[in-house]
């Protein structure tokens, strides 16, 4: 009798597992199967990427699945996900590495398994890519920093709030910032501290720095979540006036602050467009079209003057025109 209990347990388990299959996973059409790998699912930036890629999938009738680590930006988890998906052999990978060096052998494995890989956001080196789409973190850090330095007349005391230490985007954005810094000899970097890419830590770090530095002319944060935290800290301390805050990503509430004149500007990396174009590239490649090996997107600086389109939800954003993008290369 107890054995039957065990069998029952197994049966219930099986039923549950089969039921799990009906948990939501995106499926649009009967078309080619494409796995889209993202870095995380909590940051609004990656939501925009996802929506962009879903729009392309709908338009081209692809069956895409969004795959993202449940621990944000976790190398070990993305490694497992890629391995699992190589087993499933979809028609193509659309891939953002959580770390472009660490994911190299995985992409290599996908190459060996004959799965075409479209890479965007961070380029994976030494592997076969159908196409690479995006602007890189170094450029965005560099461009954003230059724009901010120009705003304060190329001279002044600046604070930099870094992302998660050892995260690749944080590294590259900081490197870009430092390059800009080296080009402006009258800009003094007071300090560079981590805000962990999160609002609350950034807010608290900024509060502490406000105690330390009675004079701060400008602040740059490696992403908008932190930039908004910085604005909040400056506001509470009554020191927001005349201190421009620059961020990266243009998340919705940062856009609102820019619109209200409380935050200076942010640099966009257009996640929505990248996600869209990457999936379109996959579709076109799978259907035998030639796709450029390199599609670079310009960094857009978003300030009070041009912020309006960024106040739209990503669902309402217009998709970029493929032919126009290609023509601009």
């Amino acid at each position: 009798m107890k054995y039957s209990k065990f069998i029952k347990a197994v049966a219930v388990g099986m039923a549950l597992i089969t039921a799990t299959g009906s948990l939501p996973g995106a499926a649009y059409a009967e078309g080619e199967k494409v796995a889209v790998f993202l870095k995380n699912i909590s940051n609004p930036y990656w939501r925009a990427v996802r929506i962009g890629s879903e729009k392309a999938a709908k338009e081209y009738g692809l069956d895409i699945t969004i795959v993202a680590p449940t621990k944000p930006d976790n190398i070990e988890e993305q490694t497992r996900q890629v391995e699992d998906w190589i087993v499933k052999k979809p028609d193509a990978f659309v891939f953002v590495p959580v770390d472009y060096k660490a994911m190299e052998p995985l992409v290599h494995k996908a190459n060996e398994a004959g799965i075409p890989v479209i890479n965007f956001s961070n380029r994976v080196e030494n592997v076969d890519l159908v196409s690479y789409i995006g602007s890189d973190d170094f450029t965005i850090g560099y461009e954003a920093a230059k724009y901010l330095f120009d705003e304060i007349g190329g001279a002044g005391k600046v604070v930099y709030i870094e992302g998660v230490p050892a995260a690749i985007t944080a590294q590259r954005r900081k490197a870009g910032f430092e390059k800009a810094l080296s080009e402006y000899e009258n800009i003094e970097l007071l300090t560079s501290q981590t805000g962990m890419y999160r609002r609350l830590p950034a807010l608290q770090v900024m509060e502490n720095l406000l105690q330390r530095y009675p004079e701060i002319d400008a602040v740059m944060a490696a992403n908008d979540d932190m930039a908004v935290g910085v604005v909040e800290a400056l506001k509470t301390a009554g020191r927001l006036d005349g201190v421009p805050v620059m961020g990266v990503d243009v998340i919705p509430d940062a856009a609102q602050l820019i619109k209200d004149g409380k935050m200076f500007a942010s640099a966009d990396y257009s996640g929505h467009d990248q996600g869209y174009l990457a999936v379109v590239a996959a579709a076109r490649h799978l259907r035998g079209e030639e796709v450029p090996a390199n599609i670079s997107l310009p960094v857009v600086i978003v300030n009070q003057g041009n912020v309006d389109p960024w106040l739209l939800e990503p669902e309402q954003k217009p998709t970029p025109d493929w032919d126009a993008v290609i023509a601009a290369q």
Binding site: I17, T20, G21, L23, P24, G25, A26, A27, I41, T65, I66, V67, A68, P69, T70, R80, Q81, D84, W85, V87, K88
Partner: peptide, 16 residues
Amino acid sequence: NGLNLMNVAAEWQSAA
């Protein structure tokens, strides 16, 4: 592995 093979969306995977 099973959750990945069965296409369970990332947001449901942690809960599962």
